[in-house]
């Protein structure tokens, strides 16, 4: 067991992958000599060399496109996209090639590319440095999408992403990069595509992932002071979604609130609400309620706190659920 930040845990996870799998390699803009904007790849070029940790030109489409070609030839590329909003030049390659090559070749080929993307707001920046585009990729069959919320998951899930034979988009909660936690480097926490109950409760289920997990835990603590027992679930995998875990929890609690930073309109929360409404109809005491960003471009820094779901917004949603 050792204590490390999420950024350091990903760094150590990548180091372990580079050691264990000689076919794995990193590529991205300024990830080598600079160590990345958030220093997540710091020291890796010095340790493994420029052919394992490649600085690329500014060309997101080219990075993902060449990674696909490498994966088709048996390599395990791990690409860094510098910020969430910078992935869009590569969207074409991801949605039209990466997600579909396995199907198109009738299973003869696969493209196990991992794409690391720091995502989410709360860092005082603007649109395209603060976005949460996970639903756009979740809507693309053929991709898997996971996101850690703590250092232990960060350390293990990045390694599990590389081991997966499908392409995986690995969203990193950038405003939590400096959040410290215990990492057990001996025992993996199991399937990265399963949700974790991070706080048990009996009255309502609060589903979150990535940067909002600490917010949800704080909201659950506040609700406990009002006599409400809230169960908090860290989704961990956005595609596929662990609906079984959600169903088990909601059948117990009878209430569901889903929160994410991305706009609620067309978001992951709507998908969860719909599925749970079908699967838990006779257990539900209240309609599923979503909390999230507004349907608008990510706002300016000085007012972003009004945009991001906070404890109050989660408590308000829980109150609404309890009012039925």
């Amino acid at each position: 067991m050792s204590t490390m930040t999420i950024a350091k845990a990903i760094n150590e996870g990548l180091r372990a992958t580079l050691r264990n799998d000689p076919k794995s390699f990193l590529m991205g803009e300024d990830i080598g000599s600079l160590g990345g904007v958030y220093r997540v790849t710091e020291g890796l070029k010095a340790e493994f060399g420029a052919h394992r940790v490649m600085d690329t030109p500014l060309a997101e489409s080219g990075i993902i496109g060449t990674a696909i070609g490498m994966a088709l030839r048996g390599h395990r590329p791990i690409c860094e996209i510098q910020f969430d909003g910078f992935v869009f030049p590569a969207f074409n390659q991801i949605t039209t090639q990466l997600a579909k090559i396995h199907t198109r070749s009738d299973g003869q080929l696969s493209a196990p590319v991992v794409i690391r993307i720091p995502y989410g707001g709360g860092i005082g920046s603007i649109e395209h440095h603060s976005e949460s585009p996970e639903a756009l990729f979740a809507h693309t069959p053929g991709l898997r999408i996971i996101t850690p919320s703590n250092a232990n998951d960060a350390y293990w899930m990045i390694q599990q992403a590389v081991e997966c034979k499908d392409p995986v988009i690995f969203f990193e909660p950038k405003r939590r990069y400096w959040l410290k936690g215990e990492v057990d480097t001996e025992n993996a926490p199991g399937d990265p595509f399963k949700a974790h109950v991070v706080r048990e409760g009996t009255d309502a289920t609060l589903v979150v992932y990535g940067p909002l997990v600490p917010v949800a835990l704080a909201a659950a603590n506040a609700a406990a002071e009002d006599g409400h027992s809230v169960e908090v679930i860290d989704l961990r995998s956005i595609s596929p979604i662990d609906f079984d875990a959600l169903e088990t929890s909601v059948n117990k609690t009878g209430r569901l609130v889903v929160a994410h930073e991305a706009p609620t309109f067309g978001g992951i929360g709507g998908e969860i609400a719909s599925r749970i409404s079908e699967r838990c109809f006779y257990s539900l005491e209240a309609p599923a309620i979503r909390v999230g960003g507004f349907h608008m471009p990510y706002p300016v820094a000085r007012v972003e706190e009004h945009y991001l779901p906070d404890i109050d917004r989660m408590l308000e949603a829980l109150d609404r659920a309890f009012a039925y």
């Binding site: 000599s33 690329t56 030109p57």
Partner: peptide, 11 residues
């Protein structure tokens, strides 16, 4: 320099 990558490395 493109951030920290030289023109010779990138172009």
């Amino acid at each position: 320099l493109g951030m920290g990558t030289t023109v010779e490395m990138a172009a």
